[in-house]
C-alpha cells in the first residue's frame, strides 16, 4: 500500500520548517520519524498535501541537563532515549518506557516529539511524560511557548498545539533517586498497550484508559494522604473511560489498571511483589 501523492520538503532549519508550516497551514503535516504518520497515510486514513520532514534537524536532536530539568529535542529518537547516559542517571523512567515502544526498527525511527504530538492515548511516552509532570515546548513564527503536559491534550489525537506550531522540545524533571516503574500490558511484545501504568515519585500516568493519557489522580491523592499502596491502587480507574476493543473490555481494563498500578507502585517503592 502506498500513500496518496503529496509534496515533500526537508528544510535545513527549524525556522525554515516553521515558515513552510505557516505557508501551508492545515494542508501540511510534520514528518519526524514517520512511524505514526506513514502507516495511516499508507492505509489512506490521512492524506496531507505537504509533508515537512524535520527528522534530520540536528538542532532538535539532543538530551541535556538544564537546571532542574532534562531538556530533550523534539526529534530525539526512542533509541537515543534508551541509550542515553544522561537519562539513565537523571530520569530513568523515560528510557525504560522508550524501550517498550514498538520494536528495535521502530525505535530507530520514532521520535519523542512525534509521539507526544501524535497524542495516541495508547502510546507509552505521553503517559510517561505525564507521570513525570513534564513540559512540551512549542514553537511557531509567533514565538515559543511552554505547555505543561497536564494541559496539553484535549482529546483523541488532539492537543492545544496550533497547526503552525512544532514540538521542538520536551522537558522533564530530574527525578534522581525517586522510585519509578513502568508496567506495560500487552498480548504481544510489540503490540500497543492494552493498559500501561507509569509511576514516578508518587505520580501515576495511565496508558489507554481514556481518550487522552491520564493521571490517576485519586490514586495520587490517596498516596499523598499516606494510604497504603493497595488502597491507592484500588482507585486507579477513578475518572477513567477505558475503550472497548478486541483486546479488552472496559471492565477488564478497569480491573487491569488497578493490578498494574499496585505492581508499579510496589516496584517503585522498592518492595518486591509477593508471589509474582
Amino acid at each position: 500500500m502506498i500513500p496518496v501523492g503529496f509534496e515533500y520538503s526537508r528544510p535545513d532549519t527549524v525556522d525554515a520548517a516553521l515558515a513552510l508550516l505557516a505557508e501551508h497551514g492545515e494542508d501540511a503535516t510534520i514528518l519526524a520519524g514517520g512511524h505514526s504518520l506513514l502507516p495511516v497515510m499508507k492505509l489512506r486514513l490521512a492524506a496531507p498535501e505537504m509533508v515537512i520532514d524535520i527528522g534530520r534537524l540536528a538542532e532538535l536532536n539532543y538530551i541535556r541537563v538544564d537546571g532542574d530539568e532534562v531538556a530533550i529535542g523534539g526529534v530525539t529518537r526512542y533509541r537515543d532515549l534508551v541509550i542515553s547516559g544522561v537519562l539513565a542517571a537523571e530520569c530513568p523512567l523515560l528510557p525504560a518506557v522508550a524501550r517498550t515502544v514498538g520494536d528495535p526498527q521502530v525505535r530507530h525511527r520514532g521520535t519523542l516529539g512525534g509521539s507526544l504530538a501524535h497524542g495516541d492515548p495508547a502510546s507509552d511516552l505521553p503517559a510517561a511524560v505525564l507521570a513525570l509532570g513534564g513540559t512540551v515546548v512549542l514553537r511557531s513564527p509567533r514565538g515559543t511557548r511552554s505547555v505543561p503536559i497536564t494541559e496539553f491534550y484535549t482529546g483523541v489525537f488532539s492537543s492545544v498545539k496550533e497547526p503552525d506550531e512544532l514540538v521542538v522540545e520536551v522537558r522533564v524533571p530530574r527525578t534522581g533517586t525517586a522510585g519509578w516503574a513502568y508496567e506495560k500490558f500487552t498480548r504481544r511484545s510489540n503490540d500497543w498497550a492494552i493498559v500501561g501504568v507509569a509511576v514516578v515519585d508518587g505520580r501515576v500516568g495511565l496508558v489507554n484508559m481514556g481518550s487522552t493519557p491520564l493521571r490517576a489522580s485519586a490514586t495520587e491523592a490517596a498516596l499523598a494522604e499516606g494510604r497504603s499502596v493497595e488502597e491507592a491502587a484500588a482507585l486507579a480507574d477513578v475518572g477513567t473511560e477505558p475503550p472497548a476493543d478486541n483486546a479488552g473490555t472496559p471492565e477488564y481494563r478497569r480491573h487491569l489498571v488497578k493490578v498494574l498500578t499496585r505492581r508499579a507502585l510496589t516496584t517503585a517503592a522498592g518492595i518486591s511483589a509477593p508471589g509474582a
Binding site: 498480548r187 492494552i194 477488564y252 480491573h255
Partner: peptide, 8 residues
C-alpha cells in the same frame, strides 16, 4: 486464551 478471556 487471551488475557481478557482468561481473566473473565
Amino acid at each position: 486464551l487471551t488475557p481478557v478471556r482468561v481473566w473473565t
